[in-house]
Write a protein that binds this DNA or RNA. Structure first.
Lengths: 202, 202, 202, 202
DNA sequence: GATGAATGAGCATTCATTCAT
DNA sequence: CATGAATGAATGCTCATTCAT
């Protein structure tokens, strides 16, 4: 099922969905700043007014799209994490959910990379901060439950996320921008193993 | 010595330097798109005409700044790599040079992150591609010399750069955007060790 | 009793009244042009459609408000004039009714000043002209009855209204915009005396 | 000599003058809010950019025009006042300078009436307040010199300006909007006499 | 009658770029 | 070489008004 159908499932939200889809396409193709409201309007055949009615702003549209991606990614992560029993399972869940989400929603992933800076400096920066705070808290709880951090004594907590996800993110970026060819899912296991080793928890 | 004094060392280039410095400040503070030529003019007290005389247009200024950063970073990497004897030395050289450069030139590093997408889609995309090609070739040569890749048989070559530098890059991004506090140089060794372990070459 | 209750006394007109009151507030606070239908809707908690149902369009609302003020002011003037016996009484009636109305309905007076130009150039300009014509005729009749104009021989008729009401209007404007402090009713007698003297009819 | 030539006499300010003249015409013909920058641009055959270069804003243009009128009117008033010896002379100077200015610059006078409210609520409200303060102070000085206020003991000072100028202003407004036909200069003496009588200083 | 989503013409404003001086 | 006034296409956004439900 499509990401947007998950986020806006009702019938009445059809227009909203079609605006978002058109915006995603335009933003990814032309770049966020280079995309004009008129381009989006053309792409989904509505009126300028309708776009503003539903999203207030160009920045509101950018943010709505970004938060939709964030939530979808979060949902997959939680799903994977719920099945995890051990610390190693947890690391796998993070790496796999990250890679699978990017590989399945490359457009949304691409958008997420380019929109983050925009949202983080725009009028929705507070909402972003808050969502990040909540997400980090949830992750900490999960990892506390799993006893992660014990095996990797000595590693500063603020370093751990980079060790777990850094390589995957780096490869996914390279893939999305065409610098490497192979689909990241082909390296799921390698990247999860490498992340685990990098934690020195072997 | 300052990055710009290295790149534009002559006396006559003083104006060029002061424009670049002002532009860097503005771009980092306001964002590249949000910065107007007028803002830069104000910040370095020249005329619009002078800016256009030296850099042709805004994208020329963005690119000049980006390539200056790239070259400075390259120079440090080469310096570190020249002292490397073993594969492990090479990994350390990459990680250390990356971290040290970011930590010493945080403004340039910040700019590099935000400008890459702009340059990669602007009129200087070819020059960027070419520079990347040259850099990758150099790196490959160095690593071939050091016999890197032998100990890590089985790892796809296109994955290796992400394994080496991914975590460091991830942490540096987090540091530049204030999400973590500790200066990345504090974790130089930890990150290099983790990178080495992640390669499975222990 | 409230101006609007006088103009729209029935129970069924409650909504109409609440729209007018909200519009008056908004127009005075933000200015007529700066006030949007949406602001008015918010202020009286109806729907856009309801406003258009009752007043056809924004200019209809502006005019309805203006004519309501005009009628209320007219009613008071007639009331005062009906008690007048002499020319001097007539001048007093005009000055006092003007001042008392402004002092008792400052919001409506303020609105009247700012709306006149709008109505006089909008689609209701004819209605305004007609109402003015009728009012002037009535005044002329009253003054003819009282024999006004005899004592002040030599004064051009078109100058007389300005001599009678000019100073009061000037002071009331100053009071409404905060340039003077004292309530105009404090100067009722002084202004009426001055008007009388200015007619040279002493 | 034209009002604008007095305010912007240099050769280089030619464009500025032509913009102001075009704006005055448009504002008076269509109304300030109804006038678009494009209309003004057409009327003086420049570019939008030039208008913004010289006046920053539509509101800047409105204010520049308003202050130019104010200064021109002030200059005439000072000129007339300088020749005054007695209180009666002073009253005449105020009434005559007011009437003469309106009659000689009807477009500027009309504009002044409609622009005052806009400027008083716009971003230049402070400048307007300050200019008013200075003007009032000057007037007070002049009248103190002339011993005005002595003969009219008992009249509250804040009422005096309305008594002096109220009737003239009222008649001028009526003339500018076509409600009366006779040019106000025809009634200069009558209005000055009436003002003097209204002060009760006879 | 009431509602409010949808419409789209219209506007102020910006800003990279040029070029006469 | 330097200057900065002038250009004008392009854009985000507003808001009165309509009309299907």
């Amino acid at each position: 099922m499509d990401l947007l159908d998950r986020s806006y499932p009702s019938r009445r939200a059809e227009l909203k969905r079609s605006i978002l889809r058109a915006a995603l396409d335009c933003f990814n193709t032309q770049g966020i700043e280079a995309t004009t409201i008129e381009m989006i309007r053309l792409a989904c055949d509505t009126s300028v007014g309708a776009i503003y009615h539903h999203f207030t702003n160009k920045e509101g549209l950018v943010a709505a799209l970004f938060f939709a991606a964030m939530e979808d990614q979060s949902a997959l992560r939680l799903e994977y994490l719920e099945a995890a029993q051990t610390a190693r399972d947890g690391v796998n869940a993070l790496v796999f959910s990250y890679i699978d989400w990017v590989a399945n929603q490359p457009d949304w992933a691409r958008y997420q990379f380019s929109a983050r800076a925009v949202v983080a400096n725009g009028p929705h920066k507070e909402e972003l901060r808050e969502r990040n705070r909540v997400r980090n808290q949830q992750l900490q709880q999960y990892f506390a439950q799993l006893g992660v951090g014990e095996g990797m004594a000595g590693l500063p907590p603020e370093l751990v996320p980079s060790l777990i996800i850094g390589s995957s993110e780096s490869y996914c970026r390279a893939w999305l921008s065409g610098r490497v060819q192979q689909n990241p899912t082909a390296y799921r296991e390698l990247l999860a193993d490498a992340a685990w080793r990098s934690l020195g928890a072997g």
